[in-house]
Design a protein around this nucleic acid. Structure first.
Lengths: 335, 335
DNA sequence: CTGAAAGCGCTAACAA
DNA sequence: TTGTTAGCGCTTTCAG
């Protein structure tokens, strides 16, 4: 016995109206007589009506859905920004389909494919990579399906609308702060992502600009914890005296901290650490990391705003929004 | 100019077949002549065909989608288990629609509503609360729509299929471990969730059973960090001498650790801490917390397996799976 | 193995 | 303000 779902027709029958009126009551309530509207809503509630999204988007060719794809929801940077975006989409009358690509190209592609199949109205995408040679194949399908995309945080080659961090400036800001606190003789180890990551390289360039006459060593890992940990560990094994580390995102910095502590050293006392992005849970464990933070709420706002404008067919002349970072240094004088 | 999407009919035209054959080529490839199949697939690839999910589920009344709803994707417990479930669903030919309820009843309800509207085939749900009086209203709609539900981790009143932790046993196991390490004169402070949380109360009962002749104080917060932090802080402000804390989930334990460190004390040296669930990032920051862990991969497997059996109409006589916890104590003798 | 006809539930475009 | 008609793209009959 398969229960049949309540449809518009059922409400129509019950109210002696036609189903189009019922449809309008939900989609364009102001195009319906208030009294009629009330009758319809009441009947719908009694029957426990639930609209059928498939039917709706099949016909109307717009789903009122925005897709969000992230490389890693467990990273608080993406976790929080996604949460904000979800809220803002809801406020604008859009539902969200959220996919985690788990830093895997295969999952990212599948997620996009899924979103196209669902006929989403637009997609906010943070790719798994910002490498200059990362050229996902799905942009063709997206263009064919006429689905606008806004890139978030991770920039890739090509003409894409996007909301980004001012990577160069962020690194420059904290670079200047570092310059004030460390002598030029002191070596600084920067751990970043791949050597061709645009995000990573912009940050490195910012540091070099601020610390042009310092002894800087750049090491390449990726934007996750493990490789950075291994890198930092081998550096510390060589020599831990008077080291200064910079992690180019929160996961990298976590890896550095892990290596420091495993080597029996105290962060910010034996070895000084700086970061781009807040370091998750560092407050819980009582370690102050001077870092560049970014207004995630603002980024979320801009991304949602941009995708909705694109959905509405607006031609955005300036299709990049750059969010400037904020230097966040501990109140206490630990560093 | 709205681009029209490629449809089955387009492929049909190109291949001089009927659209039903094209349909079968995708849905039931073995019901189609291998040669025909190849022709169809080739044409589809050339045209860049993307199936329309709306049309498919409108007609077939099955979507091949499983919905997952979590209270907090940033909590590694749910983050990891969800990741595993996503993988396993894919393997079984199901796509996943994932919603984060952000510990808000409003979002949880909205998520379920959405999933019903999408005609998902089944839902794996971890509710925002395990309070005995938490009775979400959406179970009626779910029943009406004939969508099976498997609860995960957070148990609520009613006849629901589910995959749970053996909360009582987990607490009992670590309680016994604690008993071995602390004299009966030593006071033990347990911080749990609400006084009517079934999960929390089962854990408390387990502790009481193992530590029946100890001086136990139970404090109620919730399964998030902030309240636990405040509670622990006020206890430490009173008296920090020789305290032993137990956090009833990972977020609570994080709150306890934060309070300890803020009060200038060293976890596991000045104040001893035990936990149910792994404590995220504690390894990074070099703090060993003896805890009960659970085989998340197994939980994910069981949940996915159960929902698929329910989708397939199997009558599950034993609709609860209980996963036993594993005691995880540090190798080093810190505690 | 392949096809023809019908219809899933909803909503444009028109008409009244 | 409300109703009629038609059809979105796919898949379920039932034939061939």
């Amino acid at each position: 016995m398969t229960k049949k779902r309540i449809t518009l027709a059922d409400i129509a029958k019950k109210t002696n109206l036609s189903s189009i009126t019922i449809s309008r009551a939900f989609s364009y309530p102001d195009k319906v007589n208030p009294e009629t509207l009330e009758i319809v809503l009441k009947a719908a509630a009694e029957l426990n009506y639930i609209p059928n999204r498939a039917a709706r988007s099949l016909k109307s060719h717009q789903s009122k859905i925005i897709g969000i794809v992230n490389p890693n929801m467990s990273n608080p940077f993406f976790g929080q920004i996604t949460r904000e975006m979800v809220m803002k989409c809801q406020e604008q009358g859009y539902d969200v389909l959220m996919f985690d690509s788990y830093e895997l190209a295969e999952f990212e592609t599948k997620a996009i494919q899924n979103l196209i199949e669902f006929s989403v109205d637009g997609i906010i995408l943070s790719t798994i990579s910002s490498d200059v040679d990362y050229q996902p194949t799905y942009f063709d399908s997206l263009k064919n399906s006429d689905i606008p995309v806004v890139l978030l945080d991770r920039e890739i080659e090509g003409d894409h609308a996007g909301v980004y961090i001012d990577n160069l400036d962020s690194a420059y800001q904290i670079g200047q702060y570092i310059a004030k606190r460390h002598a030029k003789t002191q070596r600084i180890d920067i751990i970043g992502a791949s050597a061709i990551s645009m995000v990573s390289n912009n940050r490195i360039a910012g540091f070099r600009a601020a610390l042009y006459d310092y002894d800087i060593a750049v090491h390449h890992a990726d934007f996750e914890m493990q490789l950075a940990y291994e890198k930092a560990k081998s550096l510390l094994d060589e020599d831990s005296y008077n080291r200064v580390f910079v992690g180019l995102n929160n996961q990298i910095t976590l890896g550095i901290i892990k290596a420091i502590i495993e080597n029996g050293l105290k962060p910010q006392i034996d070895v000084v650490v700086y970061s781009i992005d807040d370091v998750p849970y560092s407050d819980v464990f009582g370690i102050n990391i001077p870092c560049m933070t970014h207004n995630l709420s603002e980024m979320a706002f801009q991304a949602v705003n941009m995708i909705i404008r694109l959905i509405n067919g607006e031609q955005l002349n300036d299709s990049k929004v750059i969010i400037r970072g904020i230097l966040n240094t501990p109140k206490s004088g630990l560093v």
